[in-house]
Structures are given as C-alpha cells and as structure tokens.
C-alpha cells in the first residue's frame, strides 16, 4: 500500500462478501479485526477481541446496528462503545467498556480499513469490478514473479500471464504461522460477461499456484 507519513488504506474484503447483518474476520497489519455490516448497511471495523473475556468478536453476531460477542452477548456500537450486557439487563454499561475501532471506507466494491490516519482517499479502481478474494500463501514478490508484473504503490497489478486480463489488488503480505500470506482481491474489466469472469477466476487460481510454487522453491535450502 502507498504509505504516506500518517497512514494507509488496506483493502480487506469485497463489499459483496460482507452481507448486512453479518460479521467476518479480516486481516490488517495489526492482525485480525472484526469487520461487520449493520442491518442498515453501515460497515464498521473493530478489534477482534471482546474486552470481557477475550473472545474473538468475528465469531459473534450482528443485530440491528450493534455487534455482539457470541460468548456472553455483550454488544458494541459502531463507535466501539459497549451498549448492552445481557447478564445485567438493567445496567447501562459504563463508558470505559469499549473496543478499538478502525475507520472504514467502501469504494468501487472494496472495503478499505484505515491503518493510522491516511491523508488521502483509497485509490480509484475505475474500469474494474471485483470478482473474488483469494488468500495466497506467498509474499508479494512471488505473486509479482508469477504475474510477470510489478504492483503499483497502491498494490495494483495488471496481468495477462494466465490468459485472462486480470487486475490484482494486493494487501500487504503478512507473516502467519505457516509462512508469508497475501490477501489478494481479483478484479476484472467492468462489463465482462459471466463466462469471462469464470475464466478469470480460474486464471487467478492458476496464478496463485504459480506464486505458491515459486515461494515453496524459494523456501528450500
């Protein structure tokens, strides 16, 4: 991602993959966050940890405009404040109970999460539409090698290496338990028909295999 001095936007998911009234886990540099869309359609992001007993909030549920923990049903608003503790129905939760939140933007069918305070807007993806998100078990360099192209400062990379014309939107690569991992959003030219999209999805899988094979070879002594 383009990293100015104050922060940057990380593309975490396709808008279409975050249904109203659901929560999903998403990956940013700080680790996993809980990304959720309220019933009215508002997207929000918070730390993936309920401060009560440490349970992952991305395992929780969304009712109305609040995100609830699956463990004890503690609920949080979009501003991160605890709004409800079911064990104590008469209690207004003290203001000190809250989860860390992240600024979220939705544009061109992608959900972006702010890390720090980005000075500019997320990059424009005009001419492209999101197809699917793939997790690649390889770093950005291996993906660039497989695609035969370099990513821009915004993480955008255009390729025809696997036949179909694709645009890959790469999140920053991360070290996970199994090695390096890169969440990759696959975009296709706006207006292309389902058969082309299916072919593009298969091309993206092929690129992933190529990148992972390259990364695997790189790991051998």
């Amino acid at each position: 991602m383009r990293s100015d001095t104050t922060g940057f936007w990380t593309p975490v998911a396709l808008s279409a993959d975050v249904l109203a009234g659901t929560v999903i886990p998403a990956r940013v540099s700080a680790g996993i966050i809980a990304l959720w869309r309220s019933q009215s359609g508002h997207v929000a992001a918070s730390a993936d940890r309920c401060p009560h007993r440490g349970m992952s909030l991305s395992h929780g549920f969304v009712r109305g405009e609040a995100l609830s923990c699956i463990y004890h049903g503690w609920s949080y608003g979009q501003d991160g404040r605890c709004v409800r503790i079911p064990a104590h129905p008469g209690l207004t939760p003290p203001e000190t109970i809250r989860v860390t939140t992240y600024a979220v933007r939705e544009s061109d069918g992608i959900v972006w999460v702010a890390e720090g305070t980005p000075a500019s807007d997320p990059p424009s993806l005009a001419g492209w539409i999101p197809l699917r998100t793939l997790t690649v078990e390889a770093d950005r360099e291996a993906i660039e090698t497989a695609a035969g192209a370099s990513a821009s400062a915004d993480g955008l990379l255009e390729t025809t290496r696997a036949d179909e014309r694709l645009c890959l939107l790469l999140s920053p690569s991360q070290q996970v338990r199994t090695g390096m991992q890169t969440v990759t959003h696959v975009l296709v030219a706006d207006g292309c028909l389902p058969p082309v999209r299916i072919a593009a999805s298969r091309s993206a899988e092929r690129l992933r295999r190529m990148a992972e094979t390259a990364a695997e070879k790189g790991r051998l002594p």
Binding site: R63, R84, P89
Partner: peptide
C-alpha cells in the same frame, strides 16, 4: 455450530 442469533430479534431485556 452455533445458533445464528441474528435471525432472532433483540429481546427486550428487563430486569
């Protein structure tokens, strides 16, 4: 596999 609690409306909680 947990219940999808969101399918049920928020109950009105009273002490």
């Amino acid at each position: 596999i947990h219940r999808l609690h969101e399918l049920k409306p928020e109950p009105l909680l009273e002490p």
